[in-house]
């Protein structure tokens, strides 16, 4: 049972977009059930359950860190910390984009049988990936403890993460809408994210680039979001340029998302 759904309202514009995004959050109970359902199903009959998430992340960090230590000939501790934090945060961001592309298509059955705000399913996606990140955080905690612990500066991770969540919601929503209408975009998005992985300093550092190519890392918004979350955890000083760029991206995304949500939320169901 629900009150008159917002999608029936014929308004458009920023306010309608805002109401669409707020209505999804008001369905937090369904967000919780939908978000945890996939994990519940995936690990239902396994002995270690969802800790396979932690185990497989730990294994890949150990292997990657080991190989990189040999290749870079740098202190293992530093490399492990850098790789663990970068890889886990990158996976979080990139999954939001690639799964965001298919979020509405995957929820088509639910959307056609219950008039919930579409944003509900985006929040569920966000929530699920936060749960996965919480499991991976164990690996980060262990690696950082070995690295020498974290100081008070690590608290700066929180605003960085919050900003990434806002941007992640927007990107998932926008990608989901685009891909619901133009199905080729789902395939395009996963290819794009693979390419982005290569040009984002995840397994390499920005100063590895020749100076005249450093702009690649500066222009890449994923690099900015990665930096504002990663640097505080590694005890590095915050980088004002990265913060400014991430803030600008998030603000732009919020604006576009509200406009798009206001304009096309009523069309979505006909695209599924």
């Amino acid at each position: 049972m629900h009150e008159v759904p917002v999608i029936l309202s014929s308004q458009s514009g920023l306010l309608a977009g805002w109401r669409e995004c707020a209505a999804g959050l008001a369905n937090w109970r369904i967000v919780h059930l939908e978000g945890s359902a996939v994990l519940r199903r995936r690990y239902a009959r396994s002995m270690f359950g969802q800790f396979w998430l932690t185990l497989s992340t730990a294994a890949s960090i150990v292997i990657l860190g080991g190989v990189w230590t040999l290749l870079w000939k740098q202190p293992a501790r530093e490399i492990f910390a850098y790789i663990a934090v970068s890889m886990i945060l990158w996976n979080f961001m990139s999954t939001l984009v690639t799964e965001g592309a298919g979020v509405f298509v995957a929820s088509a059955h639910s959307l056609t049988n219950q008039g919930l705000a579409a944003s509900t399913y985006v929040y569920a996606l966000l929530y699920r990936n936060m749960l996965i990140l919480a499991h991976d955080a164990v690996v980060i905690a262990v690696v950082l403890a070995v690295h020498g612990g974290v100081g008070a500066g690590a608290l700066l991770f929180l605003p960085g993460f919050a900003l990434a969540l806002v941007a992640g919601f927007c990107v998932s929503y926008l990608a989901g809408m685009l891909c619901a209408r133009y199905r080729d975009m789902i395939l395009f998005t996963s290819t794009l994210m693979q390419l982005m992985f290569y040009v984002t300093p995840v397994l390499w550092k920005r100063d590895f680039l020749p100076p005249r190519f450093e702009w690649i890392a500066h222009a890449n918004p994923f690099a900015a979001f990665l930096a504002i979350m990663r640097d505080p955890l590694l005890g590095l000083a915050p980088e004002p340029a990265a913060w400014a760029y991430a803030l600008a991206c998030a603000a732009g995304l919020v604006l576009v998302t509200l406009l798009v949500a206001g304009a096309v939320r009523r069309r979505l169901i006909y695209w599924l």
Partner: peptide, 16 residues
């Protein structure tokens, strides 16, 4: 509330 109409107007009051 699943299909917002292309034409016309829908007004519903009460829990559906």
């Amino acid at each position: 509330g699943v299909y917002p109409p292309i034409a016309g107007r829908v007004a519903i009051s009460g829990k559906v």
